[in-house]
Amino acid sequence: MAKRIEVKDLNVYYGSFKAVEDVSMTVEPRSVTAFIGPSGCGKSTFLRTLNRMHEVIPGGRVEGSVMLDDDDLYSSKMDPVNVRRTVGMVFQRPNPFPTMSIFDNVAAGMRLNGVRSKKVLTEAVEKSLRGANLWNEVKDRLDKPGAGLSGGQQQRLCIARAIAVQPQVLLMDEPCSALDPISTLAIEDLIGELKSSFTIVIVTHNMQQAARVSDKTAFFNLAATGKPGRLIEIDDTATIFSNPKQKATEDYISGRFG
């Protein structure tokens, strides 16, 4: 069950420094939303607030609300571990657990959640690897180290690991920035397939990628170095790239700054 994300009046801090200011947006279920904007404008920081990863950083805190359907992610009753189980994350660089096999990498989250049945784990690992379009490439070497795969395969392994615990939302922080063009295309194709089951939010510096994979695009910017990042505009991707409402969006997309 993919879920809707509703963000209202969100401010994000590192200690006393306000990194992101006054963001409100809606992310629809079973869709891909891309965050674009210059480096340092708070895209990745904001992304990490959507599964409470931001508060892992010393001094990290937020004001405002993030609703996942009817659940307030920042409610005192909400367990951050459960939030991160519901809202999975794939990072910029592939990070398979280096001492674990391919099978154990995918099964790690399920085992952490208390799943012990070999049959259940085996079925879930195959389903997740198929979901990440990796099964046919690794089915005969599941006992080999995950770190022995190519970069693109490692990133798909990390996606399989993320979806194995059946999240409703998948966050991706520049998932293709460390990959070659062929691996990038494989990940983009995979994102297109996964959105039928998940709500996906992706941070990317690749404008063409945002145009290719996303249904909606959000443009972030900051007034100057040291100032907080702000959401300038969010709209259908086709509108953002062909007829944005804000001049700053048009300037960034056309390469006049950033």
Rank of each mutant, 00 (worst) to 15 (best):
D104W: 14
R85W: 01
R130D: 09
S128E: 13
N105K: 14
V83C: 06
L73K: 04
R130L: 02
R84V: 01
S128K: 04
V125C: 11
F91S: 01
D79H: 06
T99E: 12
T122S: 13
V106S: 09
V83A: 10
G114A: 07
K127N: 05
S76G: 08
R85Y: 00
I102H: 14
M89T: 01
F103C: 04
P96I: 09
L134G: 03
V115F: 00
M78S: 10
K127D: 09
K118M: 14
N113Q: 13
R116I: 12
D104P: 10
F97D: 07
E126L: 07
K127Q: 10
A108D: 12
V106P: 06
G109R: 12
R130A: 04
G109N: 04
K119R: 14
T86R: 05
G131F: 06
V106M: 12
F91R: 03
F97K: 11
M100W: 15
L134F: 00
I102M: 10
R116N: 09
F91M: 02
F97T: 13
A124T: 14
D72C: 04
V120W: 02
M100E: 12
L112N: 05
V90R: 01
P96G: 08
M110Q: 12
F97G: 06
D79K: 06
G114F: 05
P80W: 00
V125K: 14
L73A: 07
G114P: 03
S128C: 07
V106E: 14
D79T: 09
M78G: 02
R116G: 11
G114L: 07
V87S: 00
F103Y: 15
V83P: 00
T86S: 01
L112A: 10
L73F: 08
R84K: 13
R111N: 09
I102N: 08
M100K: 15
D104E: 15
R84F: 01
F103K: 11
K118I: 10
P94W: 05
V83G: 02
M110W: 03
T122W: 10
S117P: 03
N105W: 15
Y74V: 03
T99V: 13
N105F: 13
D104Y: 09
G109I: 06
V115S: 04
G114E: 05
F91H: 02
R93A: 12
P80E: 04
M89H: 01
K119M: 12
S128I: 02
R130Q: 07
K118L: 10
L129C: 08
R116P: 03
D79C: 05
K119Q: 14
S101L: 14
R84D: 00
D79R: 08
P98H: 15
N95A: 12
Q92N: 06
S76C: 07
V120N: 05
D104K: 11
V120K: 10
N105M: 13
L121E: 08
A132M: 03
I102W: 15
S117N: 11
K77Q: 11
T99C: 07
N133T: 03
T99A: 15
V83S: 05
D72L: 08
L129R: 02
V90D: 05
L129K: 03
G114Q: 05
L121D: 07
G131H: 06
Y74L: 06
